[in-house]
Design a protein around this nucleic acid. Structure first.
Lengths: 224, 224
DNA sequence: GCAAAAGTGTTGTGATTACACCCATGC
DNA sequence: GCATGGGTGTAATCACAACACTTTTGC
């Protein structure tokens, strides 16, 4: 039996993957952009990404392009949305966009050439529809921080409650009550207190580590 | 200036759109499947869908294939996920999957040939990875019903609180307290009481209509 | 001692739950 | 009348926010 394509394999549609990578730095949310070296939009800043190879899964493409940018594995990676409007590029391109979180220390360790990290509130003009894509990724991030534990994805293995609170505050853009914040996260069962403290200023703060028995976010029946 | 494709236009990857269409019938969630008329998986049941035309937006393709199945416009339509694993089809196919809600009366009015509606708890074996896709769509539906008003998408323009409660109960798979349910939805501001009542058995029940000033679900910065 | 962050205690408020109870209709 | 679903009332509970207060460090 033969397989009969209904459209020719050359359908005029190409498939790309881009990734919105978030990290945290000095209480700000930052993301890496690459400068385009060819048309269209040569010279403009764009999200890191690449074409999907016929023998490579979408997730793998996202991981690969992410590694090529930050040099290391993310602490969280999730598909965001498929953008495929006709006018978003001179040729017809469907972009499967992912979003990722990388820890602050990981991001700092692997700075690359022609990659620059920008504060999300001070982004330059972006190529294609990437401004809209970043807006949507930010919306998802702010939403998801309210009902999951993804904020931990920004932090190194050991951290204080003030560190974690700072992450929440920079994502949500508002101050949180330290006392109530402490109780909320203590009751969530996602943190394991250690016997170590961070000293240096004022009263030492206890260091916590993440309880890896609980997922950063519920993903439903999708394979992880 | 010339555009230089990095991969040839014939990348060996084709782009399709499929849609998981939900409706409600006798307290059960049902969805339409089409029988495949060619290989691969000839004769098996599959989600309605089609190839993306180079001149057609993804949303438009979803609406079109949905119309070809149910014959009418959905009350809710949202992108679900892009499935693109290597092994999911003999050829490399990236499927942008949407999910939709259609009102019970709309679904009943437009029954089509070679389309059959199945109870989601009694699905046959499906082609490709469509079983997994339906599982994920159901998970999203059950989640979203908890924090949005999409359940209204199943109902005709006028309905009783018992109708609405039945929708919630069939989605969530559990009974809800009628008294508390009433207060919750009355306080949500999404319902407008009418002066009409449904009679026929016991005490007549007031008919409500949906307040179209509030969206069925918050979609963030994505264009609707 | 003093400032400041770490950490604890207390109180009020609003949403949710469980359930008792009344109302209006068909039979 | 009586069974049944429509609709109201109410008290207990819980999560959360606001804020006063104590503890422990650096200087």
């Amino acid at each position: 039996m033969t397989i009969t394509p209904i459209t020719p394999a050359d359908s005029g549609i190409r498939v790309a993957v881009s990734t919105v990578i978030f990290s945290q730095r000095d209480g700000r949310i930052v993301l890496p952009l690459v400068r385009r070296t060819r048309d269209p939009h040569e010279g403009q800043w764009a999200l890191p990404g690449g074409w999907v190879d016929a023998a490579e899964n979408l997730d793998a493409t996202a991981s690969r392009t992410l590694a090529e940018t930050t040099g290391l594995a993310p602490s969280y990676l999730e598909q965001l949305y498929a953008f495929g409007d006709i006018g978003r590029s001179p040729e017809r391109v469907v972009s499967i966009v992912y979003w990722a979180l990388v820890r602050e220390d990981v991001a700092r360790a692997a700075e690359q050439h022609n990659v620059e990290w920008f504060d999300v509130s001070e982004l330059p003009e972006l190529a294609f529809d990437h401004t809209q894509i970043v807006d949507y990724a930010l919306w998802r991030l702010r939403n998801k921080v309210g009902y999951s534990r993804i904020a931990h994805g920004f932090l190194p293995s050991h951290f204080t409650l003030a560190d974690l609170r700072e992450v929440y505050e920079s994502i949500l853009g508002k101050r949180l009550d330290p006392a109530n914040f402490r109780r909320q996260v203590e009751n969530s069962g996602t943190l394991i207190p250690t016997d170590d403290f961070r000293t240096g200023s004022h009263r030492p703060a206890r260091l916590y580590r993440y309880n890896h028995d609980v997922e950063l976010a519920e993903r439903g029946p999708l394979p992880h």
